[in-house]
């Protein structure tokens, strides 16, 4: 970890200005991932611009269209436990609380959560090839120990997974990411925020140089009646997902009016599949119906030497989580399987 210059920004505009003026500036908010990466010498900055003292963008506020705006600089913990989130977007609350630990959620911000780096062993080892870390060097995970790696949307360049839980729920909820940058403000639909590896696995998302996430907007429908977040992992807490599922169901007269299913731990970004969700429309919820949706979602999955089990696991997790969503009160602390 190298030393750096440090500036405390008082406003988003000031922060953006600093990022333009200073060479190789990086923003820091919660720091829970950035400092970790810096200590491992995986990233470096000449200047850190501290966003934590910016007064704006902390609050959770209702939007005129019935939605909710999550301030980007609010912590994950305060967001998860905010009455409006717990009440109207309990899926999001559950997903946030399934991630990391109480201490980390007290530090990590909503904006930062979207910008986490993969936990691929080979990305974290600066001495082996990794296209994400050093484009063109190769992917060590493909022929290596790939039990935790992706099964969807992979290619020969990268099979890393995106580690966030919160983002799986945000993907399911069709959130919108608000950003400000040197070029002004813009909004990015959640599905377009993160990227698949393609030919540029070094890019995790579509944020442009100097841009800051200022908020995340949730649409009015929070699937608050029938929802569930399920996280399958190697220990009951404080571990990244092997597979996670966020499900929101809107039921009417015993039929599914709309369904949202997003997967975590299986791809370079939270994974949605419209075809699977459309398939569920108007169907009566049942294990076979959910299994069929799961088959659709995993149709393109490719397993590697150690992670092929994730394909079947993901299907079963989808089915279980959809069933759990019918009985959301059965969910357990840590987002483990229930029923």
């Amino acid at each position: 970890m190298n030393n750096f210059d440090y500036f405390r920004a008082a406003s988003v505009q000031e922060a953006i200005g600093l990022s333009v003026e200073e060479d190789d500036a990086k923003y820091i908010a919660g720091g829970t991932n950035l400092i970790d990466l810096m200590k491992y010498n995986l990233t470096d900055a000449h200047t850190l611009v501290d966003l934590t003292k910016i007064r704006d963008h902390h609050e959770i506020q209702e939007l005129p269209d019935g939605g909710l705006r999550l301030g980007a600089f609010e912590t994950n913990a305060k967001t998860a436990w905010h009455p409006l989130v717990e009440g109207r977007y309990p899926l999001l609350s559950r997903a946030i609380l399934a991630g990391a630990t109480a201490q980390i959620r007290n530090m990590a911000t909503n904006g930062g959560n979207l910008l986490q780096k993969t936990r691929c062993y080979y990305f974290y080892d600066a001495n082996v090839p990794c296209n994400k870390r050093e484009p063109g060097s190769g992917c060590s995970a493909i022929g290596g120990y790939n039990r935790i790696m992706a099964i969807l949307g992979t290619n020969e360049h990268c099979i890393a997974v995106f580690p966030s839980d919160m983002c799986v729920a945000l993907a399911a909820l069709d959130a919108v990411v608000n950003v400000e940058g040197p070029q002004g403000a813009r909004s990015i639909p959640f599905a377009d925020f993160h990227r698949l590896p393609g030919n540029t696995p070094q890019l995790d998302n579509n944020l442009q140089e100097g841009e800051i996430i200022t908020g995340i907007d949730l649409p009015a429908n929070g699937y608050a009646q029938n929802y569930s977040y399920l996280k399958i992992r190697d220990r009951n807490s404080y571990a990244f997902a092997l597979v996670s599922v966020a499900t929101g169901l809107k039921l009417e007269d015993g039929h599914i009016q709309s369904a949202r299913i997003a997967l975590g731990g299986v791809a370079h970004k939270p994974w949605r599949d419209e075809a699977a969700e459309n398939f569920l429309k108007e169907k009566e919820p049942s294990v076979p119906v959910f299994r069929e949706a799961a088959e659709i979602m995993l149709a393109g999955a490719v397993g590697y030497e150690h992670n092929a089990f994730k394909i079947e696991l993901a299907k079963r997790a989808i089915v279980r989580n959809c069933m759990m969503a019918l009985n959301p009160e059965t969910q357990v602390p840590g987002a483990g399987p229930s029923l």
């Binding site: 720091g31 400092i35 501290d50 913990a77 007290n106 530090m107 404080y238």
Partner: peptide
């Protein structure tokens, strides 16, 4: 690296990991 919790302190009353933040912050 934020993977054990041994460095937990209370910052303005909330528990945080002191290894994953900077003193200047």
């Amino acid at each position: 690296h934020g993977q054990c919790g041994a460095c937990t302190v209370l910052c303005d009353g909330e528990r945080i990991l002191s290894c994953l933040t900077l003193a200047v912050m």
